[in-house]
Each structure stands twice: as C-alpha cells, then as structure tokens.
Computed example of a mutant assay.
Amino acid sequence: MRVYLDENLPPFVAQPLAVVYAGHEFATHESEGLTGVEDIPLLSELRQRGFDATVTRDRMQLRDPNERLAVIESGLRWVGVRDKKLGGLQQITITVSTLIAGMRYVFEHSPEGPTSYQLHSVPHDEPQRVKVTVLAA
C-alpha cells in the first residue's frame, strides 16, 4: 500500500514506519513535491499518483463538507492522528508510536468503500507506560 504523510506530520516519521511496515511505501510532502498544496486538490493528486491512503492530523478534513466530499471522491483511506498538544520529543514519540501501533489495522482492514480511521494515541503518561522501581541491595 502507498501511504502519504500530510505536511502537518514531520517527514522523518516516514522512516520508522517504512522499517516496521517494509511491504508498504510511505511518502511525504517533501518527497512528492507537494508542499503547500491545498487539501482538496491534494487528495485528487494523491489518487492520480497511485496512493491508497493519506495520514493527517487535520481532522477538519472530515468536518468540512467540501473536504469530506473530496476525501470520499478520492477513494483514499483517510487516517487521522490526534495531536496531543505536547512538545518536542514527547510529541514525536507519541505520534510515531501511535502510527506504528495503529497502521497495522489500516493495512489489515478491507474496506468496501470510503473509510476513515481515527487512531487513538498510545498512553503517554509515565504511570501508563513505565513502572519505576528503585532497587535496593
């Protein structure tokens, strides 16, 4: 499957996804020369270029009637990732881990028509992810 990562995601996110999902292709606005292209023409262009899915943080694409129609008409699988409003390394690790964990379901699913996938962020607070124990001799 060919997957386009929207320009609201850091381009380097493509690399870990490509390592984990070696049978799939991940492209970015930089690699495709699509920086700054508005959403509606972008969705059509992605389909013309043979993409199967688009991944974005822009959840307004499904709320705006014109953009929603463009998603449907493109035939692309729409994958949304929630921005947790975190910063720096914390945001990067949550985004990458959410995509790695969630894209498996996108790839395994066989939709019968236009489909959206809204990936839930992996737990990211210390008590949710790590148990810290001080070891004593």
Rank of each mutant, 00 (worst) to 15 (best):
Q118K: 08
S116D: 09
M103W: 07
H120E: 15
T56G: 03
H109A: 10
T56P: 04
G50L: 12
I94L: 15
Q91C: 01
L135H: 10
S44T: 10
I72H: 02
L135F: 02
L86I: 01
D58V: 00
D83V: 00
S74P: 03
F51T: 00
I92F: 15
V79W: 03
R77S: 08
H109T: 09
A70K: 05
T115H: 08
S44D: 11
R47E: 07
V71N: 02
L86G: 00
V55R: 06
V81L: 15
V96H: 04
Y117G: 03
I40Q: 10
W78T: 00
S110F: 07
G75I: 07
V71R: 12
T115D: 09
T56I: 01
G36E: 12
Q128Y: 08
V55G: 13
T54L: 14
D52G: 13
W78A: 13
A53E: 08
P111C: 06
K84G: 12
G87K: 15
I92Q: 06
I40E: 11
T98D: 09
A70C: 05
V81P: 01
T95W: 00
D39I: 03
P114F: 11
D52L: 04
Y105I: 01
S110R: 10
R68M: 04
V55H: 07
W78V: 01
D58C: 03
P41F: 08
F51Q: 02
H109F: 11
A101G: 01
P114W: 07
Y105W: 09
L135M: 07
E67L: 13
E108K: 10
H120N: 13
D39R: 03
T54Q: 07
P123Q: 07
E126Q: 06
D58E: 14
D83C: 01
Q48Y: 05
V134S: 14
D125S: 08
Y105L: 06
R59F: 08
L43Q: 02
W78N: 04
H124F: 13
D39K: 03
R59Y: 08
S74M: 02
T133C: 09
M60G: 06
Q91G: 00
R82D: 13
M103S: 04
A53F: 12
E108F: 01
T95R: 13
G87T: 13
V79A: 12
A70Y: 00
E126G: 01
D39C: 06
E45V: 02
V37R: 12
Q128C: 05
L89W: 14
V81K: 06
S116V: 04
T98M: 05
G36P: 07
K84P: 15
I72P: 00
R68K: 13
K85V: 10
V96R: 05
D52N: 12
D58T: 00
L119R: 09
S116M: 15
I40W: 00
G75Y: 14
R104Y: 14
Q90Y: 02
E67N: 04
V79F: 03
R49Q: 14
L69W: 02
M103D: 02
G75F: 12
R49T: 02
H120G: 07
L46P: 05
P127G: 05
S44M: 14
